[in-house]
Each structure stands twice: as structure tokens, then as C-alpha cells.
Simulated scan of single mutants.
Amino acid sequence: MDHVNYTWTRTFILAGFTTSGALRPLAFLGTLCIYLLTLAGNLFIIVLVQADSGLSTPMYFFISVLSFLELWYVSTTVPTLLHTLLHGHSPIPSSACFVQLYVFHSLGMTECYLLGVMALDRYLAICRPLHYHALMSRQVQLWLAGATWVAGFSAALVPACLTASLPYCLKEIAHYFCDLAPLMRLACVSTRWHARVHGAVIGVATGCNFVLILGLYGGILTAVLKLPSAASRAKAFSTCSSHMTVVALFYASAFTVYVGSPQSRPEGTDKLIALVYALLTPFLNPIIYSLRNKEVKEAVKRVSEKIRTLLRDT
């Protein structure tokens, strides 16, 4: 192969969204409102689980861990989105770009593993009720939660390091944050091998977890259908409906973006779909887990009553 002198890019430029002057302030304010509501909603879940003893169960512990993860997940990309909406094309140092890429994918893969753990928790609660509290002790909960973070941040090292090692001749990223496919389009060399490795690593992580979740919910469905009364079946399904909704949102967007070749999609597609999993899903998660949940509503009443009692006493 002939030796080629590549020009290494030290600074990338995030293109963001091509919004007109009139729409840009509205897009900025709308995104800012969703971001602040996302932070408030997830903080609300974390504080409520800690403040109310009625929510001191493994299911709500994992929900609070998911909310904590979502705080970091949404904060990895949305400030960059707000900056591009406000100022248009935004320069970003290559080192910061690759750090953002790594952290974003680490948190995404951690969420993937965490959703699998949450499905396991529901499986044990419904299919092994007599042994549930012994199998899902506090120590086991902490170990499982920690393992999801270690696994997520370890698995993301491979695609992040491979992408950072590429030579880049172009500077403008057709996205509002540093993601795999938009970065690989800027490389001076063929990225087919890199795309295969990325697909294998991310595909195994997401695919295996998805198969695990399907298998666990298959076991849950079988167990629920054997319950004697319609009321008990409805109650069992209600504890799983929120999690199934979150899994559907997460995997639908993840498979759309990360399964298949980046070259097979139009450039603008990635950033539009990214809005779903990087902004909309973290915004919806607290609503999904609390809006139709009687236990959360009762916990809010108990905590509110405690606050009113404290205020009266003082």
C-alpha cells in the first residue's frame, strides 16, 4: 500500500441542526425546557425512593439507579445541542470529542445492562416469590448495579479507542454531538473493518441483553397466565408494563442507529433518531415510572404529609 500523508484534525466542528433564525430561539427554549424537566423528573424519582420507606424494594432501587444514570446520560449531549442551537456550528477539540463519545456509549451500554437486570428482578419477583427477598438481597442489588456500570464502561472502550485511532481529513461532523457513524464518515481511510468491530461489540451487548429480556418476559408471561384470578394477573402485569415500555423505546432507537452500516443511512437520520434516545427517552422515563404507578403516588402523599407535619412543627 502506498504511503499517504494524512492531515490530522485537532478540532472538529459540530454542525448541529440547520434551523432558521426565527426557529432557533424556539428550538433552544424547547430543548432547554425538556432538559430541565428531565433533570427535575429523574431527581424527583431518586429523592422519593430515598425519602419513602415504602419504596425500599429492589425494583425501586434499580429505578433510582436508572434515574441517576439518565441524569448523566442526558447531560453528556444536551448541553452540546443547546450550544449548537444557540451559536450554530460549534468547534470542539478532538480530545473532548472522543471523551464525549466514550462517556455517551459507556452510559448507553450501562443502561442496556441495567434494563436486563431490571427484567431479572421482575422475573424473580413474579416467578420465584418465596425466594425473591433472599435472592435479591441488598448486597446482591448493589453488586448487580455496580456490575452494570463496570460492564458498560469496559465494553465502550473498544469502539471509542478504535474511533480515536482513525486519521481524520475532514472536520465538520454532521451531528450535534460526537457519535460513531458521523465521525467515521470523516476518516481518511476505509472504516469497514471498524464498523464490523463496532457492530459486533455493540450488537453483542444490546442483542444478548435483548434476548435475555425476551426470555425473562417469556417466563413472566407463562407464570402470570397460570395465576388463578384476573385481578392477580392484572396486578402482576402492571408491575412490568412500565419497564417493557422503556425497553421498547430504548431498543427501537438503538437498533435503528447501531445495527447496519452507517453508509446505508442518510446523514441527517442519525441526529434525528438520536433525539429520541438521547433526549426524549430520559425525559419520558420518570413519567412512565410514576404517572400510572399507585405506589409512587402513595409515596408522594406520605412524603408530602411528612413535609407538612415538619412545617407545622417548626
Rank of each mutant, 00 (worst) to 15 (best):
I92N: 15
R302Y: 06
C33S: 15
A125V: 08
V189D: 03
L186S: 12
I45L: 08
P25E: 09
S56D: 14
A231Y: 14
L55S: 00
I92Q: 09
V74R: 09
W72V: 05
V189T: 09
A278H: 09
D179A: 07
A134P: 09
S253C: 12
T110D: 02
I173K: 13
K171I: 02
A151I: 07
T314R: 10
F62T: 01
D121H: 10
I63K: 11
Y289K: 02
V140H: 15
C240H: 10
P266K: 10
L170Q: 08
P79Y: 01
L14H: 10
Y176P: 00
T269V: 11
S232D: 11
F17K: 15
W72K: 13
R312C: 08
A299L: 11
H83D: 06
I92W: 15
A181T: 04
T222F: 07
T245H: 10
L166H: 13
P25V: 03
T148Q: 06
A147Q: 11
E70N: 07
R265M: 14
W72Q: 10
R233A: 12
L284Y: 12
V140F: 13
F98S: 05
L180I: 06
C112Y: 00
L249W: 12
A223M: 06
C178M: 04
G207W: 09
E111V: 02
A274G: 15
Y60L: 02
A164H: 14
A299E: 02
F62S: 03
Y113F: 06
D270C: 08
T239P: 14
V197C: 05
Q50C: 09
R24Q: 12
V247M: 04
V300E: 01
P58A: 04
L32S: 10
Y251W: 10
A147P: 05
V74T: 06
T19V: 05
P262R: 01
L14A: 08
G88N: 07
V246E: 02
Q141M: 06
P159R: 14
I307G: 05
M136P: 03
P159N: 07
M136K: 14
V197M: 09
Y73F: 05
A231G: 08
G146F: 03
D121M: 07
Y73I: 03
N293W: 05
T269W: 09
P167K: 00
R128P: 12
F177W: 13
F237I: 10
F237C: 09
L291M: 03
A230V: 06
S190H: 08
L216R: 14
H89T: 05
A40P: 00
H133L: 05
T7G: 13
Y113I: 07
L114P: 12
L157H: 15
L14E: 07
L81F: 00
L310P: 12
S229D: 10
P182R: 11
L55E: 03
Y132P: 14
P93L: 02
K306S: 04
S90L: 04
V296S: 05
R308C: 04
L124W: 09
T7W: 00
R128N: 10
V300C: 02
V99T: 09
P228A: 04
A254N: 05
L162W: 10
T31E: 01
A181W: 00
K294M: 11
V224P: 15
R192N: 06
L32A: 12
L144A: 13
